[in-house]
Simulated scan of single mutants.
Amino acid sequence: MPMLDDRTTPDPRIEPYALWSYDDSLTAWPAPRGEVADGPAGPATAAPARLRDATGLPACLPPAYIEVGQLDIFRNEDTAYATKLSRAGVPVEFHLHPGVPHEFDSIAFDSDVARRAIADRIRVLRSI
């Protein structure tokens, strides 16, 4: 699950492994949001991580499925978002895949970790 927080601080431990870079995110953020949503005063709808309090969302949200690679620049924001939703009572299934970067399932689609991730996605989709 990429790009939840436009305010992400680069992590120098992840940067050498990043297939999608912090610069890529800076370039991509204006595309869906437009210039109106830029800046710290932008609405939570501009970037999901801007949501300060997820209380009240459980009634209107389906369970969340969030997965991210340990070496993905989105790791910290995805982890924080999963925690925020969970604290508010939203059912969350979260997977942190060890030792893999962004798009690991496309790059090494036959690896054990990619097969597990794809099987989990299919399981979740079938349960809907």
Rank of each mutant, 00 (worst) to 15 (best):
H95S: 12
D72I: 03
D24Q: 13
P40S: 10
D6I: 01
A44K: 11
G34N: 08
V36K: 09
I128M: 15
A47L: 05
P43F: 10
W29S: 04
P16Y: 03
I128Q: 15
N76G: 10
A108S: 13
I128E: 11
D53K: 08
A82D: 02
A88P: 05
R121M: 14
S127C: 04
G34C: 09
H102A: 04
T27K: 12
A18Q: 09
A59N: 06
G56C: 03
F74K: 00
V90G: 10
W29L: 02
S25L: 01
P30N: 07
S21H: 08
W29Y: 09
A44Q: 12
D120M: 14
I66K: 08
R115G: 01
A64R: 00
V68P: 04
I128T: 14
P91K: 14
L85S: 05
E77L: 01
R115L: 11
A64V: 04
L19V: 15
A82K: 04
F104S: 05
Y81V: 00
D112V: 13
E67V: 02
D72R: 03
A41C: 00
A46P: 00
R33G: 12
L71Y: 14
L85F: 06
T45V: 06
G34D: 07
M1I: 09
I122S: 06
R13F: 03
Y17Q: 02
A64W: 05
T45P: 00
D72Q: 01
H95C: 12
A49V: 11
S21P: 12
H97L: 03
M1V: 11
G34A: 05
A44V: 08
E67P: 02
P63L: 02
Y81W: 02
G89C: 07
W29H: 00
G34T: 05
C60I: 15
L51W: 03
V124H: 07
T55Q: 15
D110S: 15
S25V: 01
V124K: 02
A80Y: 05
I107N: 04
R50F: 05
P91A: 15
E77V: 01
G69E: 02
D5L: 06
L51R: 02
P62C: 11
I66A: 08
A117S: 14
F109K: 13
S127T: 13
Q70V: 01
T83K: 11
T79M: 09
A31L: 11
L85R: 06
Y22G: 06
K84S: 01
P63W: 03
M1N: 13
A37E: 11
A44D: 14
G69V: 06
I122M: 11
I107Y: 13
I107A: 13
E15R: 02
A18H: 07
E67A: 13
P101T: 12
D23I: 06
G99D: 09
S106D: 12
D11K: 08
F104Y: 15
R75E: 15
A18S: 13
P43L: 14
D24C: 10
T79D: 12
F109V: 07
A64I: 06
R7D: 13
A59T: 11
I118K: 14
I122W: 07
P12M: 05
E15W: 00
T83P: 00
E93F: 02
D112W: 06
